[in-house]
């Protein structure tokens, strides 16, 4: 029973990873690509780790540490990527709203 739950989690996670890869290909500019590449892949990795926890219950501590590390690093790196792409102004801004410029 635990195996089946684990495989379901891993399937959902890999589905999210595939969707995020598709988004990386299809999105038009840097910011929207980051939107696809970070959020979906973070959740996908976390789901895969949860599924592995169901499959191998003895490794739960290391897997929780792994998930925490992904939760720490993935949003941070995407934020820094978004910031540097803003500073090089390499994205489309169709709305005309620039809150970062207004706040400075």
């Amino acid at each position: 029973m635990l195996d089946i739950i684990g495989y379901i989690f891993i399937f959902l996670g890999t589905l999210l990873l595939i969707i995020s890869a598709l988004g990386l290909l299809r999105m038009p500019d840097a910011i929207t690509r980051m939107h696809a590449g970070t959020k979906a892949s973070t959740l996908g990795s976390i789901l895969v780790i949860i599924g592995a926890m169901f499959l191998e219950p003895g490794l739960w501590f290391k897997l929780i540490l792994l998930g925490l590390f992904i939760l720490l690093t993935n949003p941070l790196s995407s934020s820094i990527l978004a910031r540097s792409s803003y500073l090089r102004s390499s994205f489309l801004n169709k709305s005309g709203v620039d809150e970062m410029k207004d706040s400075q």
């Binding site: 720490l72 820094i80 540097s84």
Partner: peptide, 12 residues
Amino acid sequence: YDNTLLKLGAKV
């Protein structure tokens, strides 16, 4: 860059 988020994350 002078990036507060990066500094905090690096410290962690």
